[in-house]
Write a protein that binds this DNA or RNA. Structure first.
Lengths: 338, 338
DNA sequence: CTGAAAGCGCTTACAG
DNA sequence: CTGAAAGCGCTTACAG
């Protein structure tokens, strides 16, 4: 690509003007004599001139690029998130550079190497050291999985604790008492918060949390499937929970498959509640009951807040996005005691 | 971000050496006296120095970035494609800049503005003019939906014609004669090629292509659903095709839903064949019969070929990736005539 | 209205 | 081994 693309210097030479004049013409700075302007423009187009943005960036100190770092852009959560972020950034005149790597040095190069004007990402993907660098260098950043706030750092999270409680309350109201929960990995904010909400609700209703009903599903499809399958096949039917709350969409799907595979009916025998996962393109996606988190809204806040910080229009803020409770077909009312 | 990040100049001043020496130290050019080296290194780390990559790029003429332009990174095809491209690029030391825009000027800025070292994308998203610019400026590019070849342009496509034929032959062998086809938009290479293969196979078997069985599904879920639903509800049951070939995964899903919704059994009454779409995360994704295209392989070739061209190691090539026929549960053998 | 010069942060011959 | 200088492609005061 480095070949012989023409520069303003080429234009200047050919047009017999200075590079300053060329620059002025090209940037529509209304100070050039119309005739000169015409002439320069013509030469420029004749040379197929396209400005070298890197040089411009070096001057202006801006890249009009946002770095988005994540582990994946697949799945019912990450995919719409990534797509929305890219789309909204573009609408605002920013490009987006996706960093899928865990490699901290890659991250660092991008973040601190002035390749992007700011970053959006998941806090659990970066080390404390990098976070520290972000702070001290006053890098503009928005985290979407954890509450962090600083002069140049904002965040946007779901009201996971609240919704964890709400969903559990709902099940209890429906007469459930033996309620299970599928956790994500230890350090996932949403998992922890949802679980905390669940425990609070259980406690308030004087229901005890049965440790056998707490599953480690890793927030992934396969592990959730495995752990539930394992449980169902090694546990007496009468000891099944009557309802399971999946900490996220993928674990809901894994659980759904495992339960179905054992020919156990949903919701007649086991009710299932989920978070997210309402945009699955599948022939007959189950009509899940649960919390629907508006991902696009989250993406929108993240991008716009970041850009506002880049323009120094605001300090970092924390935004909580409210999920909506959606009644599907996977919860059934339960007769009193058992 | 532009704040007061430290530069080699700052280091030089503080270390009492020239910027050239700093540069040499930082780039591990083994020419500096160990003591000086130590000293500089220490100051650098003390100043939290991180090189400004833009300046480096301006010098080297390389960005180590690949532009990927597409309309979407969602769906069973685009999503794994985008993710694979990002991953493989990263493994090769390249970042990836996703351009979701149709805006040609955005594209142009990126492609020609030296923001990326090369591009991967869909030919139908760019205008002839831009393509021409790519050619004349010898931009390195790989197209993944159409056969194009030039000194600096390569492409990677699926063997869609072949597979369209193969799949149709298979249905014919299974005794089907009334075979429908769901098309994509007019200018989609894969759609055209698969359809061409279908027609050839039909012709060779002396079966006539019933125009009522040719559906315009746009390669999207909703439109495919609509067109099939429309057909099923306005056509006598005896006039249904016994098999339908969906031109891509999303139309297969749309068709699947429409057929199911009409309480028509698959495959007993209508067999359904698909392209791609084998990685759908859904609780009970139908086990489709059809062609499984190795998307990761496609991504891998695209990225590696592009990088080889960037390094001037090869001229543009055309690669055809072979799809694999997978027997699922959506095709049933058909008794002779009707 | 136009041009010469300095500078963005870096690298790379070239002297010393 | 180290430094002064030119240059990557552009912009931006500052003279004229």
């Amino acid at each position: 690509m480095t070949n012989k693309r023409s520069t303003i210097k080429d234009i200047a030479r050919k047009a017999n003007v200075s590079i300053a004049t060329v620059s002025n013409v090209l940037n529509d700075i209304d100070v050039v004599k119309p005739k000169t302007r015409q002439h320069v423009l013509q030469i420029a187009s004749q040379l197929n001139y396209v400005p070298n943005l890197r040089a411009k960036q070096l001057q202006s100190g801006q890249t009009k690029m946002i770095g988005f770092f994540c582990n994946s852009i697949s799945g019912p959560y990450f995919n719409p998130l990534a797509e929305s972020i890219a789309k909204i950034a573009e609408e605002n005149g920013y490009g987006i550079n996706i960093l899928l790597s865990n490699d901290q040095s890659m991250l660092r190069r991008n973040i601190l190497g002035d390749l992007v004007d700011g970053i959006i990402g998941f806090e659990d993907l970066i080390t404390d050291k990098e976070l520290q660098l972000i702070r001290t260098n006053r890098i503009k950043a928005v985290f979407i999985d954890r509450i962090i706030q600083d002069e140049t750092i904002g965040s946007v999270v779901f009201d996971s604790y609240q919704k964890g409680k709400e969903v559990t309350d709902y099940l209890i109201q429906q007469g459930h008492q033996k309620i299970g929960f599928i956790l994500g990995k230890d350090d996932i904010y949403d998992s922890n918060e949802r679980f905390r909400g669940y425990k609070t609700a259980m406690e308030k209703a004087n229901l005890k949390v049965n440790p056998n009903y707490i599953f480690k599903g890793e927030f992934e499809l396969e592990p959730a499937f495995q752990v539930i399958e394992q449980f169902l096949t090694t546990t007496a039917r009468k000891d099944y929970p009557t309802a399971i709350i999946a900490g996220n969409d993928l674990s809901a799907i894994g659980a759904y498959r495992a339960i179905k595979q054992q020919k156990i009916r949903i919701p007649e025998e086991i009710s299932l509640v989920s978070f997210d996962g309402f945009d699955l393109d599948s022939p007959h996606r189950p009509n899940l009951t649960g919390i629907h988190n508006p991902i696009v809204e989250q993406a929108k806040f993240a991008v716009e807040h970041l850009i506002a910080m880049i323009h120094n229009q605001t300090p970092g803020k924390v935004q909580t996005i409210e999920g909506h409770f959606v009644v599907g077909e996977t919860v059934q009312q339960r007769a009193e005691e058992r």
